[in-house]
Amino acid sequence: MTAAQVVFYGACLVMLGSALYVVLGRNLVHCAFALVATLVGVAAFYVFLGADFLAGAQVLIYVGGILTLLLFGVMLTNRIYDLKISTGAVQVFPGAVAAGLVFAVLVWIIRSVDWNAMDTGAPGPTSEPLGKLLIGDYLLPFEIASVLLLIALMGAAMLVRRRTRP
């Protein structure tokens, strides 16, 4: 086992272990911190895959932004509002059976497909080609993402603004 492999499988363990804590933990604040570990593990995967820019974006946006948001959410509303979503929360055992089945099917399919994987080696720094793609071939999705951000920002601000009743 090379050092890289040790790091990779270590990251796997941390990632899946903390993901399990997210779905099993009793304390939501701890769950949110476990999610940090999972997301950093995913960023490590990106590094292994040579996606340096994406790894940075993952840490900055996900861990720095989304997670902070979630923590705020947890701390401001924790234990006070438990929402039962309509699918009806399932008991742990049937839930585990269902998730296990999903995992088994996925693994079976992943193993049965001949992926024709070819490794061209780690690409160089990706920020420049990514930037060029975003203003070239992927210009429209890039612009749509900006519209999406604008409207989400506006909507979120509107939803939390305190309104006086007429």
Binding site: L140, A145, I151, G155, L159
Partner: peptide, 23 residues
């Protein structure tokens, strides 16, 4: 990419529209 992104844009805008009467 477009299918996913446009579908999400419609969805996010719809979520906000549904919650419009925030009181």
């Amino acid at each position: 990419v477009m299918i996913y992104l446009s579908l999400e844009t419609v969805s996010v805008a719809s979520y906000i529209m549904v919650g419009y009467r925030s009181s």
